[in-house]
Amino acid sequence: MKFAVATSVGLADPMTLIERQRLEYLQSLRDLDAAPIGKGPAAQLLVDGAILHLKADLEWLDLIESRLTQWEKVG
């Protein structure tokens, strides 16, 4: 949503936004990877779920980036 608003009103370069968001997700992934696993199975499932969500978000950013690149080429 932030992405749609910021780019449609020309506030930010979309590629720069994608880049920043990707690097933020990587930091969150690092945090989750280091989360203590001794918190019990439910906590571990939550951490694994959050990691899978982050990976999906990262893949989505890859998709947006490649679509934008295609659209730029088509003009």
Partner: peptide, 13 residues
């Protein structure tokens, strides 16, 4: 890595 906030006390589960 920053500490992750758990929404509940995992040990209880």
């Amino acid at each position: 890595a920053r500490p992750v906030d758990f929404p509940f006390d995992g040990d209880r589960w």
